[in-house]
Design a protein around this nucleic acid. Structure first.
Length: 462
RNA sequence: UCCCCUGUAGCUCAGCUGGCAGAGCAAGUGGCUGUUAACCACUGGGUCCGUGGUUCAAAUCCGCGCGGGGGAGCCA
């Protein structure tokens, strides 16, 4: 059986076929009954037309039960459509209800629903135009990620999801345990993690970076792409407790190589979306964010601006009246600063580099000035930070000193330091939040609407 | 964690300084040159989030609780 995408693409007029899917809407007139069928294979529906004067009682009985949301099979002959709106349609002769969707209880109606409402019915929202399109684009973007790296000789490395090391340092972690909390509370005894599953306290990983660096020092070009967990109490349109992150890492690569990779990567992904998801992007352009396609297309053909943190601060200081938080050298860039740089100063993506070491992670390569590190953030309009990365500190003594200066537990980093003791080499990488990419590509504002089942503070339904 | 907004029909919302519960869409019925966010007419549809208080009278004012949204911080 052909899916609707193939039927609409091949337009095999005069062929007899059966289409199965879900009813989006049904319209009655005196002489004709129109059923819009969607099977998720593409954005478009197959319009099925029944001649009200010639269909028998059996078909009419089935049509009476075909409400919005019902699953059904419709057979007939494909014809060129006499009306505007669709090149072909199904001249239907039979209809079979496979699964009803009673109108008095099915939550989705043939009208627009708010994204907030649809979030409450996450099990049904993929049946809407918006979330069907999001799902298809998400699928294409995931495939594009692998395609990009595979074409360039990167090896996909599966870094662990559970970690017993407390040294990832990228945020609050979810604890993983098989200990019986209720029993321990009842007994009033202190927790003995030696009795826990791993014999020590363990967590869900907040980043695969430290682990993937080990493979980078063996295979050179590597990347991870998997779920990541942060137990931050953050409630925003751009944070999730469970999200997917892509982290490439390259050996013998310095910051400029890293910046070039990030730029190529973003442009490749946008180009892929434009090429493979045109129909879905048209919808986002029309209903979600006007001008989206044109914006993506112009970014695809652009050259990303580069700016050091020091220059960025100078730019911000010249416009300090527009900010709630006054910028100064050494301050962390606020969201309003990041957006000003990409939206007003550059009017497009910008890579900011060489941040003060105090506001960046311990593993970033220290510059010769002793004050800044070779960090880079890719900032894009509307979204803000979409990529964060750096050249890594590969000098053993410098890294060790950084760990000590920050009061970190150097014993916990023994294997990470070993990478710098044996065959160390400059290397660089970055992290791209997959859902932030999805927000950028689709124009969807809330990150909870670009992942099938969002996990956030006080939200783990479905 | 902090700040702001919000909760009324299936959905989106209006309901003013307290005085009979409303609209659009959806649904049902009927109509209608092939419609496409169909159209026209009629009809049904309510624990005004919960709880306590003020009052002759509370959807409306006040306290508490719960839910939703936006912003900030943290970051991807």
């Amino acid at each position: 059986m052909q899916d609707i995408k193939a039927i609409l693409r091949e337009k095999a007029v005069d062929s007899t076929l059966t289409a199965k899917g879900w009813v989006r809407t049904k319209r009655d007139t005196k002489n004709a009954i129109f059923v819009e069928l969607n099977d998720g294979s593409c954005f478009g529906n197959l319009q099925c037309v029944f001649d009200a004067n010639t269909i028998g009682d059996t078909v009419r009985g089935q049509l009476d039960r075909l409400n919005t949301g019902a699953a059904c099979a419709i057979s007939g002959r494909l014809v060129a459509s006499p009306a505007a709106g669709q090149p072909v349609e199904l001249q239907a002769t039979s209809a079979e209800v496979i699964g009803e969707a009673p109108v008095d209880s099915y939550p989705l109606q043939k009208k627009a629903h708010s994204l907030e409402f649809l979030r409450e019915i996450a099990h049904l929202r993929p049946r809407t135009n918006t979330f069907g399109a999001v799902a298809r684009v998400r699928n294409q973007m995931a495939f594009a990620v692998h395609s990009f790296f595979q074409e360039r000789g990167f090896n996909y490395v599966h870094t662990p999801i559970i970690t017993a090391s407390d040294c990832e340092g990228a945020g609050e972690m979810f604890q993983v345990t098989t200990l019986d909390m209720d029993a321990m509370v009842k007994a009033g005894k202190p927790v003995d993690y030696a009795k826990d599953f791993f014999g020590k306290k363990s967590f869900l990983s907040v980043s695969g970076q430290l682990n993937v660096e080990t493979y980078c020092m063996a295979l050179n070009k590597v990347y991870t792409f998997g779920p990541t967990f942060r137990a931050e109490n953050s409630n925003t349109t751009r944070h999730l407790a469970e999200f997917w992150m892509i982290e490439p890492e390259m050996a013998f690569a310095e910051l400029p190589d890293n910046m070039a990779l990030a730029e190529d990567f973003i442009k490749y992904l946008l180009g892929w979306a434009l090429d493979k998801c045109a129909e879905d992007l048209d919808f986002f352009d029309k209903r979600i964010q006007k001008g989206l396609v044109q914006m993506l297309d112009s970014v695809r053909g652009s050259t990303f601006a580069h700016m050091t943190y020091t220059d960025a601060i100078k730019q911000l200081e010249q416009n300090k009246d527009s900010f709630e938080f006054k910028p100064f050298w050494g301050c962390d860039l606020q969201t309003e600063h990041e957006r000003f740089l990409s939206e007003t100063v550059i009017k497009g993506p910008v890579i900011v580099t060489d941040y003060p070491k105090e506001i960046k992670a311990f593993y970033m390569r220290l510059n010769d000035d002793g004050k800044t590190v070779r960090a880079m953030d890719v900032l894009v309009p509307k979204i803000g930070e979409i990529i964060g990365g750096s050249e890594r500190e590969y000098r053993h003594d410098v890294l060790l000193q950084r760990i000590r200066d920050l009061g970190l537990d150097e014993a916990a980093y023994w294997w990470y330091l070993d990478l710098r003791r044996f065959g160390s080499a400059p290397h660089s990488g970055f992290g791209l939040g997959f859902e932030r990419l999805m927000r950028y590509v689709t124009g969807m504002e809330n990150i909870r609407d670009v992942i099938p089942f969002p996990r956030a503070v006080k939200q783990a339904d479905f």
